[in-house]
Design a binder for these strands. Structure first.
Lengths: 165, 165
DNA sequence: GGATTTTATCTTGACGTCAAGATATCTACT
DNA sequence: AGTAGATATCTTGACGTCAAGATAAAATCC
């Protein structure tokens, strides 16, 4: 199934083996493919969300609120925990979503340092539509992997990821 | 080996299953882990290169020139083909590297639209050191994967990646 | 109850990226 | 030769991100 065909990363590794035969580049192959694949997938995902007026960043926040369940409210701090971005980035994301009318900031009467980010009706409707298209897109993107591939891949990803979180 | 332990992505999927049991979220698990893993790995890589005064972006360009072999010169267009970035991004990267003294722009006598980007001695020395540390770091990052894991992972990545390039 | 430390969020300035368009040069065709 | 189209690079303006620090409010400690 063309598994032995040289791809872009193979050519990079071949160059390194020629120029620096002392280096063990096996990990570079894995990490290089992982990075390229991530870039491709990120662009595919972005393209679909854009049709719903959302960036990946915006979608991530709206989706986090949506899947948290009613009443669809979380503090910026709680959103932060779930999204691997800095606090400044989260402030920026919330600002945009608020400007677009997808969320609103509600003062937290119990802790005035804090604030609650609440999905508006418009935000809820938008993310509800977008998540359907997003999931369908994810299925499309993985359609060429067999069930066995997907299971093995997920197991390896989970194991690898566990080294970092 | 704790493969059944809930990780961050498992918790996200559980939330979606509760809120939207109609969605098939298996692909979301794979793509979510891939994205998070990529982010973690990217940060680890960046940290090591930073010790050599390089960003990942800068290193990518210098490494491409280095592994192309003597005389370590490529046009911006050739660099573009190998790096998945836009032409504007490449111009910006070259500008920085030139300012830092790692590369120089040499006019191409055969085609005056074009230019050759050449590693300076300083650039060569820097990338030569950096690539050693980088490869060692990549080995460290993958040290918890068995030889079988790595082979299986690479096979799956290559297959998946082939859908996009 | 007043001072200190901790927590939660936001602000600032810098960087890397992209899409779209500008510029300069080359190629091909008449 | 002259013109039209293709090609190679650079410019511009907008985003998303981060680290570091600012601000404000709570919690803790004496």
């Amino acid at each position: 199934m063309d598994e032995d065909k040289q791809d872009h990363v193979d050519r990079i590794l071949a160059q390194w083996r020629r120029e620096r035969p002392d280096l063990d580049v096996e990990p570079m192959g894995i990490l290089g493919r992982l990075k390229r694949l991530g870039t491709h997938l990120g662009r595919e995902v972005e393209a679909v969300l854009l049709k719903h007026g959302l960036s990946t960043s915006s979608f991530d926040v709206l989706a986090t609120l949506r899947r948290s369940g009613a009443p669809h409210r979380l503090s910026p701090g709680e959103l932060l925990e779930m999204t691997m971005v800095s606090s400044g980035t989260m402030t920026n994301r919330i600002d945009q979503l608020e400007k677009a009318g997808f969320v609103e900031r509600i003062v937290n009467p119990d802790d005035r340092r804090s604030v609650l980010i609440a999905l508006t009706d418009k935000g809820f409707a938008t993310v509800e539509e977008a998540v359907g298209a997003h999931v369908a897109n994810q299925q499309r993107l993985t359609r060429n992997l067999t069930a066995e591939d997907k299971a093995a891949f997920d197991r390896l990803l989970k194991k690898f990821l566990s080294d970092f979180e």
